[in-house]
């Protein structure tokens, strides 16, 4: 499954830049990122060109980071498609723990990353494909 890199960071100036510096030094390309604010700390989530290498680089720095399984879905950039996806999951009683999305080519191509409870992951993938969407292979996601 595709991996997302999650990093625990304290909520204070300079933390993001030190992570960005480490990724740059290791020649890691960032495909997408998002930050979840939790008050005194935050969780930074990255999709990168080489998650294992990025994980090792950051772990070497002493960061608390984790690789998490996600389902990355290729989704045509069109009104109503997100509803189509989420209602298919809802009808099958599948819960989305965390999600984010981005447009790759306007009116053509977008990507939606979903984090689903492990027990429901296999079922979710079937539902997504049955709804007519393509799940990205790991390499396809990392090399967007």
């Amino acid at each position: 499954m595709a991996k997302q890199l999650t990093i625990f960071v304290e909520n204070r100036p300079g933390r993001l830049s030190s992570i960005a510096k480490s990724l740059r030094e290791n020649n890691i390309d960032i495909r997408a990122f998002t930050i979840q604010d939790r008050g005194d700390y935050g969780l930074v989530k990255f999709i990168v060109s080489n998650p294992s290498q990025a994980y090792l680089a950051l772990a070497n720095l002493g960061c608390a980071c984790a690789l998490k399984d996600i389902i990355a879905i290729s989704i045509p950039d069109k009104v109503g498609n997100f509803e189509l996806l989420t209602s298919a999951l809802a009808q099958n009683n599948i819960n989305v723990k965390d999600a984010y999305g981005f447009v790759l080519q306007t009116n053509l191509k977008g990507v939606c990353c979903l984090e689903i409870e492990e027990a429901q992951s296999a079922a979710a993938q079937k539902v997504i494909q049955a709804a007519g969407f393509t799940i990205l292979k790991d390499d396809e996601l990392y090399n967007l």
Binding site: F8, L43, A64, C65, A66, K68
Partner: peptide, 15 residues
Amino acid sequence: EIYPKLFLGDPSQLE
């Protein structure tokens, strides 16, 4: 301090 080896990346774990 968070102990890195046991960090799973879950906000629910941290809370």
